[in-house]
């Protein structure tokens, strides 16, 4: 299938999914709304990990920064939700750009460990409630619903469409990334950093940008996450979440939009079908991660390669 037809099929599937609230019960609407949020987050991790090849194992931090930004600005400062969203994106992007500055010189495994460290520090800081603004281990509750021109997006369906609308935008952004010089530069760096540099790619700058862009998109997802749950707490952004995001990209197929979406669905939608076996969830994930890597190390739905 050509890239264009692939895009058309994807767009059609997205349109069909918009009808979920009309077809399925409210439990499924909530599940698919959550899926959209995690899919955006996984796509944002794909920018850093799948495309630029930077071993980011602390991506839940940026989801958390976005969620906390919305929660704090809304509950403590009374900002309307929609006004907090740009702030959430900016805060996460800034954090990503700043944290990446000392990190991107590090070689693969060291970078992976350092990002794990940042994730742990982030959780500890949130739990310790500096200045009384993060609410400690309990987090922050009572986040408003978004309002658009006085119209409250209070219903579950309205939030679903908001999440899926943003997912649609994220998908467009990822598609454009495949077709622009910046997106290609990420792939050059991933495959051969020295060759990329001798072709004129400013590797430091491009990698920092990738971090900031990926973090910003995760911040946007975090904002939606806070609204969806109407509360945030540190436990949603722990290292296990970062591992899950990392695994989604590698198991699904790094740099492959359908692969990452498939990975997100496997990790977040399938467990909902088997709710009665919830305690086996991570046990089965563990087996699945090993099995997929051993049998299909390139991922379930790898990026299309040359003929």
């Amino acid at each position: 299938m050509s890239a264009t037809r692939m895009g058309l099929a994807g767009g059609l599937a997205w349109l069909l999914c918009l009808a979920i609230p009309a077809l399925a019960g409210s439990a499924w609407v909530a599940i698919f709304a959550t899926f959209a949020i995690y899919a955006i987050t996984a796509l944002s991790e794909d920018i850093i990990l799948g495309r630029a090849g930077i071993y980011d194992m602390g991506h839940a931090v940026y989801l958390g920064i976005g969620a906390y930004a919305t929660a704090i600005l809304n509950t403590a400062f009374g900002w309307p939700i929609l006004a907090t969203i740009p702030a959430a994106i900016l805060a996460a992007a800034l954090a990503g750009g700043l944290l990446s500055a000392p990190l991107i010189r590090l070689r693969g495994d060291y970078l992976l460990v350092a990002t794990i460290g940042f994730n742990a520090i982030f959780i500890l800081v949130m739990q310790n409630d500096p200045g009384g603004i993060t609410g400690g281990s309990d987090g922050i509750a009572g986040i408003d619903v978004p309002a658009l021109f006085g119209w409250q997006l209070a219903s579950q369906n309205a939030l679903f469409w908001l999440d899926w609308g943003v997912l649609g935008l994220a998908l467009l952004l990822m598609r454009n990334l495949d077709r622009c010089e910046f997106g290609r530069a990420l792939r050059y760096i991933k495959q051969d950093q020295l060759a990329a540099a001798t072709l004129g790619v400013d590797t430091r700058r491009v990698k920092t940008l990738a971090f900031a862009l990926g973090a910003g998109l995760a911040g946007l997802a975090g904002s939606l996450f806070a609204v969806q749950l109407s509360s945030v707490s540190p436990s949603s952004f722990v290292f296990t979440e970062s591992v899950t995001l990392f695994a989604i990209v590698i198991v699904g197929g790094p740099g492959s939009i359908p692969g990452v979406l498939l990975g997100a669905a496997l990790m977040f939608v399938v467990p909902e079908i088997f709710r009665d076996f919830a305690q086996y969830r991570y046990f089965v994930f563990g087996i699945a991660m090993i099995a997929v890597m051993v049998l299909r190390p390139q991922g379930l739905w790898p990026r299309r390669r040359a003929a």
């Binding site: 071993y55 693969g108 992976l112 591992v243 990392f246 695994a247 590698i250 198991v251 790094p254 086996y280 969830r281 991570y282 046990f283 994930f285 563990g286 087996i287 699945a288 991660m289 090993i290 890597m293 051993v294 190390p297 390139q298």
Partner: peptide, 28 residues
């Protein structure tokens, strides 16, 4: 089971396999 088949594969595949093994043992 988890590492030998991936010795020649991409490093990230082995990393994810190791993470999977960790989840498997912890939840086991």
């Amino acid at each position: 089971i988890a590492y030998r088949p991936l010795r020649r594969a991409d490093r990230l595949a082995a990393v994810v396999s190791a993470l999977g093994a960790s989840m498997l043992i912890e939840n086991g």
